[in-house]
Design a protein around this nucleic acid. Sequence first.
DNA 1: ATGGCTAACATGGTTAGA
Length: 263
Amino acid sequence: MSSTEFRLATWNVNSLKVRLPHLTQWLQQSDIHALGLQETKTVDAEFPASEISALGLVGQWHGQKTYNGVALLGRSEVSAVVRGIPGFADEQARVIAGTIRGVRVIDCYVPNGQSVDSEKYAYKLSWLAALRSYLADELARHSHVAVIGDFNIAPEDRDVHDPKAWEGQVLVSVAEREALAALSELGLVDVFRRFEQPEKSYSWWDYRAMAFRRKAGLRIDLILANQALTALCTGCIVEVEPRRWERPSDHAPVVASFALPDA
DNA sequence: ATGGCTAACATGGTTAGA
């Protein structure tokens, strides 16, 4: 049976308006079929729809003023779009799901949590619990599922440049790692770790203190796939290059490739 | 060393990120 390559990406752009040139340049040099964005930071009425269209992408978005905001884009139709987590009242625009080339893609911007003793951390944990039950439903409904985005959780110590310094902090704390493990228990696989990777592979580096140059980062941007889709995965990498450019996002894009059987 | 930098909103300084 013949197959076609499907390259799926996630990128926290930290303001789509500021990062449109970066997205444009990156898409020109990368062969991307579907893309989830986070932190678009724009209301839907001001989403740069014509610019996105000029890049050969269609899709849907779910934004709000100032903060958060997600978009799900593809070279071919994005259908059956759902915004937010159904049944979970959330003023923050953090999730958009849709079907592209037969793959159900759920694009997430998980709350940061600020610090483990804050209300925002409690919100993060309740948000992750709601996401888990949503994903259980989605996994029951769709044969091929990808959950992508900025998870704001570094799964393991090898995903943290200085695990000792970060121990117990938000993004690595036990409770949120358990919440991420609960997604794995649904059968979702962090496909990045299915392949050999360079040492110190991260997807986010602080703007401050030359963190990028010092390779002082975290891997918090993930592509999770269910078993059926994982079986079709042929690779996953962090595309570090855009983090080197002028005025970059603090996150780099992550790309996974899949050999999808032809219809 | 609890800062360092960036973006939105606003137009000086706060909120938020991670």
